[in-house]
């Protein structure tokens, strides 16, 4: 048997809740071993899409193929997937060992195999000391690791992770992010990761799926999305601080509805830069600084400037932009250059 071309393929998928169109004509192909991140604002349908992939929710129509097999009517436990939930969802009545092994026990795997899998996962996630603890006796980070371990032991073809880091504090989040990246490298399994944090998306993904209001806006690698956003939504969603969007007419570009300039592509100009305004606020980040400038007719514009800047609020400042790094959009907010 040759390996199927796609770990997951979704064609023409729709989901409605009553009158509400939660997912609108989703088409998606994911290759084996890819790390795919779904990003989008709250309520755009990321979790719904993930739950449909997992089989926890039925699609209104459309096809889902997992590892070359049509999965529309396959039960969640038979889809060869594992899921990590935002709330961890550990079984409160079982200890860590019980939590890790329940899925394999249900699948009637032999005891020694279960034991070996549990120990392997416990070792990977540094849970060996905690195998006898109940979830209520664990810290948040430890619970999260158990939740990931529960997915690992099953060695599924497809990992589904729904905002697994959102309940952790900032330091732990950065650590666990690295951990997940390492697990992906070690296991080589396909992973789908849902987040609304664009930094997680940029740092983890092989491929990012940007969603908005139930639709996929763009699919691409992090750098593709950064360099060539197909519309203003993707343009302002990816990158921090947000891309500046300026009406073309205001800076002498008659055929362009909106011009997008990333804050990091604006440079302070000594004399005659095209954008000029009064500094309203400066955020010093150490290695660089965000300068907020009030430009007449246009409004607030952000520039990300390397190093430290002398600019004080109230001072007039001028910026240059590199024409090759500027994004043009038409009236429908679509990219035109």
């Amino acid at each position: 048997m040759t390996a199927p071309e796609f770990a997951l393929k979704i064609e023409g998928l729709n989901k409605t809740f009553g009158d509400f169109h939660a997912l609108d004509n989703i088409n998606l192909e994911i290759k084996p071993g890819e790390f795919v991140v779904f990003v989008g604002p709250s309520g755009c349908g990321k979790s719904t899409l993930l739950r449909i992939i997992a089989g926890l929710e039925h699609a209104s129509n459309g096809d889902i193929t997992i590892a070359g097999r049509r999965a529309n009517d396959v039960e969640p436990s038979k889809r060869d997937i594992a899921m990590v939930f935002q709330s961890y969802a550990l079984y409160p009545h079982l200890d860590v060992r019980g939590n890790l092994s329940l899925g394999l026990k249900q699948a009637k795997k032999p005891r020694p195999f279960i034991e070996a899998q549990v120990l392997k996962a416990a070792k990977m996630l540094a849970l060996e000391e905690l195998l006898h603890r109940r979830p209520s006796e664990l810290s948040g980070g430890q619970r999260q690791r158990v939740a990931i371990g529960r997915a690992l032991v099953r060695e599924p073809q497809l990992f589904l992770l729904d905002e697994p880091l959102s309940n952790l504090d900032a330091a732990l989040r950065a650590n666990t992010r690295l951990e997940i990246a390492r697990l992906h490298r070690q296991t080589g399994k396909t992973m789908i990761y849902v987040t609304h944090d664009q930094i997680e998306a940029m740092t983890l993904a092989d491929k990012i799926v940007v969603m908005n209001k139930g639709r996929i806006e763009q699919i691409g690698s992090p750098m593709e999305l950064y360099r060539r956003p197909l519309n203003t939504f993707v343009a302002s969603f990816i990158g921090s601080p947000q891309m500046n969007l300026v009406p073309g007419s205001k800076i002498g570009l008659k055929d362009v509805s909106l011009v997008g300039i990333r804050p990091e592509h604006l440079t302070i100009s000594a004399d005659d830069g095209p954008i000029q305004g009064a500094v309203s606020h400066v955020e010093h980040l150490g290695a660089d600084a965000n300068v907020y400038v009030d430009v007449a007719d246009i409004g607030l514009i952000v520039a990300r400037v390397a190093g430290d800047v002398e600019a004080r609020p109230g001072e007039t400042i001028r910026f240059d932009m590199r024409p090759d790094l500027v994004h043009y959009f038409d009236e429908q907010a679509r990219r035109i250059n």
Binding site: R51, A54, E75, S87, G103
Partner: peptide, 27 residues
């Protein structure tokens, strides 16, 4: 009761009866 908990059970292959008796009732 958290929907995620029941869904985790479904993914682990618990039947609806098992979810009811072992996850929901104790809670």
């Amino acid at each position: 009761i958290s929907a995620d908990l029941k869904d985790a059970g479904r993914i682990d292959g618990l039947s609806e009866y098992k979810i009811f008796f072992t996850l929901v009732l104790p809670l």
